[in-house]
Design a protein around this nucleic acid. Structure first.
Lengths: 250, 250
DNA sequence: CGTTCCCTTGAACAGGGTCAATCAGCGTGG
DNA sequence: CCACGCTGATTGACCCTGTTCAAGGGAACG
């Protein structure tokens, strides 16, 4: 039932010494799905998680319209989700970093509402949704956690609506940078020096801006001494001002 | 346990002849919560629904930051949800018509992420979330339905992001009109002649436009013969063109 | 009957889009 | 090895959509 693609684990799935081969020992457990579960519950979650699905850059995890089967957790690398409207225009709906869950937009209509593609080499955990439903019926913690996850995504999407409908280009970009910085911090990475996994085009699409505007704002921020940016490599020099700009009234 | 505020129902809550006092006989049941439930399951849902909470225009159902306790279904009238950011700006996050569910943004952090206020006299069903979690643990249909509800709201929010970040003023307003028209049709009301329950200010805020632009676009649509509009009363004259404008590539 | 709220309309302005040119990296193939 | 084309990013000049500012109308309500 478990599709583990590891060679160096002749023992079994629950050996806590084999890092990253089960949830309990995964260094992301504190920010990923196991977050709300008790030890013995994590073991049950572990039973249904399918690991070892390394995607190359540009490979799709699923495509809009595919039958919904599973949700996914990013273990390493990064993933972009996007949907294409009837009229052919693309909308980037989210960037997913390690420890983050995607695919939940497929629950509603049994088909994914977006496509998910690796922005760089990425390891992914797959969790079949039927098993999650099953487990949620048995473990109240699991059910509660999933309700929360879904609800939080709603709140985040609504904040994003505010961002793109009421804020200036500078505020939107500052906001994205602050978000990525904070998410890096959660994973104990540097919040001030990191690599943007996505292209300018993706950033612009996500924020409702053109690529030119994105480029101009980055240049302006650099000129103002808020950050240094070389292609995708970012060094934040003045996080406070950046945060202030990100949450500017209007 | 049930807070029914009816006087003409001396019998009991499950009498199917007493319209609108239980879910099974409510004329909205086909589009509201009972939608996915079997007859005997609706009875169980009915047990936890609290009815008779008529709100006057301007009265709040809950406020941003309040402890999350319940989700709500609109029985009649209409409700607007909005949130206020740190910086004090308001964002209308949704309009809710009869048969629609609101309050689910509170699940994630045990506090409502938005405020909900009646845009006109409105009857509301309250469903304590603890009971829903309970029922969801027992009825797989209920759990599934709730996962779906939450997921669908995510998808709708993401479509709204596309709307406000990539579409013109005319497209946004056409889109809102088509949406309201369709939701009216679902309730067997006229899709071509209806009253907008919300103000121009609310429409503009919801769509990321100023009140002036909203007004101008309405005038333009009227001049083009797409609709007639007198204050809040709308008569759609050319729904096809309106739909075409609403889903215009960009 | 005056005040207020909501809406409409006009005129001027500006933020970001569009179009275009340039450049840097990078893999390919001659 | 270098020429070539391709993709992604940067920068400039101009323009357009929607905002801002301002004025005025009309319905509701005390």
């Amino acid at each position: 039932m478990i599709a583990v693609s590891e060679k160096n684990a002749p023992s079994t799935k629950n050996c806590p010494h084999n890092a990253a081969i089960n949830c309990a020992s995964c260094r992301l457990s504190a920010i990923c799905l196991p977050l709300a579960l008790a030890q013995d519950e994590i073991v049950q979650l572990d039973e249904i998680v399918q690991r070892g699905r390394p995607l190359q850059k540009g490979q799709h995890l699923y495509r809009e319209g595919d039958t919904f089967t599973s949700i996914y957790a990013v273990r390493s690398g990064s993933v972009k989700a996007y949907s294409v409207s009837d009229s052919g225009e693309e909308q980037v709906t989210g960037f997913y970093l390690p420890g983050e869950i995607l695919g939940m937009d497929g629950i509603g209509h049994n088909r994914y509402a977006s496509s998910a593609v690796a922005m760089e080499v990425a390891a992914i955990c797959e969790i079949p949704f039927a098993n999650i439903e099953d487990l949620s019926g048995k473990l109240p913690n699991m059910q509660k956690h999933f309700f929360k996850l879904l609800s939080q995504e709603i709140v985040e999407d609504q904040q994003h609506i505010t961002l793109v409908s009421k804020h200036t280009a500078e505020e939107r970009i500052a906001s994205l940078l602050v978000s990525i910085s904070a998410r890096n911090a959660r994973r104990n990475l540097s919040p001030l020096s990191f690599r943007l996994p996505m292209s300018r085009t993706d950033i612009g699409n996500f924020l409702g801006l053109t690529i030119e505007t994105v480029s101009r704002v980055f240049s302006r921020f650099a000129k103002q001494g808020l950050l240094e940016i070389d292609k995708k490599e970012v060094t934040v020099l003045d996080i406070d001002t950046l945060k202030r700009v990100a949450s500017l009234g209007h």
